[in-house]
Design a protein around this nucleic acid. Structure first.
Length: 278
DNA sequence: AAAAAATTCAACCGCTTATTT
DNA sequence: AAAATAAGCGGTTGAATTTTT
C-alpha cells in the first residue's frame, strides 16, 4: 500500500521517506519495552527497516509522548524571538526552554515566520524607526566612550599611521563594547524598551522581526541589518550573515553550561517565566 | 475552475560531539 | 589511547497543502 509514493523508497536496505502508522507502532512498542536510545537495535529487534538515525529522529520529533501538539502560542513565539536574539540558530538550546517543542519545530517556525518575512508596511516602518533610533543611540554611546577613553588614556605615543582606515569603524565599536559592559547593558535595556514600545505583544504580527539579531551588540550588526530585509547579507569579508543570528555565539559564550550572560534584564519574558540561561 | 506560486514541515544529509569498545 | 559506534545538531530538501492569480 505504500510503494506508491516516489520516495517511500528503499535504499541500502533501509526504508526512507514518510513513516507509516505500522512503522510508528513498531517504534513506539520498542521504546516502551527498551526505553529511548540504542536506536540501531530497533531494526534488529523489531524488524523495522529503518536506520537508527531515522528511528531516533522519528521518536524525538514526532512520537515522544511529551510533545506538545498544535500551534505555537503567542507566548511561545515571543520566547522564541527572545531566545533567538540571545542564542542565534542554536535551535536545540532554544528548544530546551519550550517544553514539548522540538528543535526542528522551532527551526521551521522561525524560518517560515521570521527569516524572510514580508513585513507589512507599518511594521516595516516601525522597524526602520527602531533601527534608526538604535543607530543613534549607538553612535552616541560610541562618542561617549571615545571621550572617556581619551580621558583615561594618557595621550602617549600616538603611532599615527594613516593607512589604516578601517580601525576607526568596526573594531572601535567592538572593543568599546568589551570595555564598557555596563554601558552596553544599559543600551541593551533601552533597545528592549524600544522594541516593546513598537511591538508590545511581540507577536503582533508574524513578522515581528523588530527584535534585532544583533540586539546585544556592536555597530557591525546595526549597519549590516539596516539595508535590507533579506535574511542573509554578504559582508565585505565574504562571510554570510543572517541578521537574526548575530555572530557565532560560540565565540562569545564559550562556556554554555556555566557562563552567565548578564543580560537577563533585557529579556522580560525570560525573566517573567523564571527561566534562566545556562 | 484550474494552473501557478508560495508555504509548510517531516525527514533527509553531512558534520560534530559524546560514548563505548 | 585510539578506533568505532551512537547521539545530537543545524542546514536543506521536496511532497503535500494552501493561497494567489
Amino acid at each position: 500500500m505504500e510503494g506508491q509514493f516516489g520516495w517511500g523508497r528503499e535504499e541500502g536496505g533501509w526504508r526512507k521517506g514518510p513513516w507509516t502508522a505500522q512503522e510508528d507502532k513498531l517504534l513506539v512498542e520498542y521504546v516502551r519495552q527498551h526505553g529511548e536510545g540504542r536506536w540501531n537495535s530497533v531494526a534488529k529487534l523489531t524488524g523495522l527497516k529503518r536506520s537508527g538515525k531515522s528511528c531516533r529522529l522519528r521518536w524525538v520529533n514526532y512520537l515522544r509522548p511529551d510533545l506538545k501538539r498544535g500551534k505555537i502560542t503567542p507566548q511561545e513565539e515571543s520566547l522564541i524571538l527572545e531566545l533567538h536574539a540571545l542564542w542565534g540558530n542554536r535551535w536545540s538550546t532554544i528548544a530546551r526552554s519550550l517544553p514539548g517543542r522540538t528543535d526542528n519545530e522551532i527551526k521551521n517556525y522561525w524560518r517560515t515566520h521570521f527569516k524572510k518575512g514580508k513585513p507589512s508596511k507599518n511594521i516595516e516602518r516601525a522597524r526602520a524607526r527602531f533601527l534608526k533610533q538604535r543607530r543613534e543611540m549607538q553612535s552616541q554611546l560610541l562618542l561617549q566612550g571615545q571621550d572617556q577613553q581619551q580621558q583615561e588614556k594618557q595621550p602617549d605615543h600616538d603611532d599615527d599611521d594613516d593607512g589604516d582606515a578601517s580601525r576607526e569603524t568596526v573594531p572601535a565599536a567592538v572593543s568599546l563594547a568589551q570595555q564598557n559592559e555596563e554601558d552596553l547593558r544599559i543600551l541593551q535595556q533601552d533597545m528592549d524598551d524600544l522594541l516593546f514600545q513598537f511591538c508590545p505583544m511581540a507577536s503582533c504580527t508574524s513578522s515581528s522581526c523588530l527584535l534585532p539579531g544583533g540586539s546585544c551588540t556592536s555597530g557591525v550588526s546595526a549597519s549590516a541589518s539596516e539595508e535590507g530585509y533579506s535574511g542573509d547579507h554578504q559582508l565585505n569579508g565574504g562571510a554570510t550573515w543572517g541578521w537574526g543570528s548575530l555572530w557565532n555565539l560560540d565565540d562569545v559564550v564559550d562556556d554554555v553550561d556555566g557562563g552567565a550572560c548578564g543580560w537577563d534584564s533585557s529579556f522580560p519574558l525570560l525573566q517573567d517565566q523564571g527561566l534562566a540561561f545556562y
